[in-house]
């Protein structure tokens, strides 16, 4: 339990993003000076992430989704008795119905493809949420970065031997961005680079991982600003880049371009 009398009792509300904006800002500043609150907030954020991962447990049966879609459209749904699972059709099958079955198979394949896309979208949304969590957790920590340097020639070599790949960082001179530092981040047990950039009073996270299917991110370029963060992700030379922060979309796009042309 935190011994900090000022904020005790409000840490959970902060982590749940339920404090009014000025208090959120004040608490964020407080975290930098109070190790008690910082460790409490960090533990709570990590536990929220753990519950989120554990709680996203059950996937709905494809036929239920198809039926609900029919239903929502006002179309007659295919009989779907969850208790009975009527399989009479199988018993009545005869060879003369083959064309019907061929069509049904084709429809099922199309449905499966649709469901695959939908499942991928859901997975992507989860991955996006997890990156947002990594960003928030790191910034809430007393030490957001392990290597503190504005010099790309210091930060990049620091990752040598710590992650199984290398990457290029852009020259930020004459740009509104500053490099704050970096740390090793883990996503689904895979080590990667977490770089923190400063832009005005905002912090922007850039995650770089090997582009594996486990990342479950959108196939190529993807931008999302539906949540409170602006996020962009893309692949480049076998690496997956994820950039997110609460800076405006133009700033995120500008940093994206710098990273894409880093040499």
């Amino acid at each position: 339990m935190t011994n900090c009398s000022t904020w005790q009792g409000r840490v959970a509300s902060y982590v749940d993003a339920e404090l009014p904006l000025p208090e959120m800002e004040a608490f964020r500043e407080h975290l930098a000076t109070c190790p008690d609150c910082a460790s409490t907030a960090l533990a709570l954020m990590e536990s929220k992430m753990a519950v989120r991962r554990a709680g996203n447990r059950y996937a709905a049966p494809p036929e239920l989704r198809a039926n609900m879609l029919h239903f929502a459209k006002g179309e007659p749904a295919v009989a779907h008795n969850a208790a009975g699972r009527d399989r009479e059709g199988y018993r009545n099958f005869t060879a003369r119905h083959w064309t019907g079955w061929a069509l049904a198979t084709a429809a099922l394949l199309l449905l499966a493809a649709g469901l695959f896309v939908a499942a991928n979208r859901r997975q992507s949304a989860k991955a996006v949420a997890e990156f947002a969590d990594l960003h928030v957790t790191a910034l809430a920590s007393a030490n957001p970065v392990e290597v503190v340097s504005t010099d790309r020639h210091t930060v990049k070599p620091w990752f040598q031997g710590r992650i199984p790949f290398t990457f290029d960082l852009p020259d930020l001179q004459a740009t509104p961005f500053t490099l704050v530092g970096g740390r090793v981040a883990y996503f689904h047990q895979e080590p990667g680079a977490h770089l923190v950039f400063g832009y005005q009073r905002h912090f922007i996270s850039v995650f770089i991982f090997r582009d594996t299917p486990q990342l479950a991110m959108p196939a190529s370029f993807f931008a999302d600003n539906t949540s409170s963060f602006t996020l962009r992700t893309w692949t480049q030379q076998g690496l997956r880049y994820v950039i997110l922060g609460d800076a405006n979309a133009a700033a995120i796009a500008s940093l994206t371009e710098l990273l894409q042309h880093a040499r």
């Binding site: 339990m1 935190t2 005790q8 009792g9 409000r10 840490v11 959970a12 509300s13 460790s39 409490t40 533990a43 709570l44 536990s47």
Partner: peptide, 8 residues
């Protein structure tokens, strides 16, 4: 709302 760190 309290939050015990070791348990958390």
């Amino acid at each position: 709302v309290t939050w015990e760190t070791p348990e958390s």
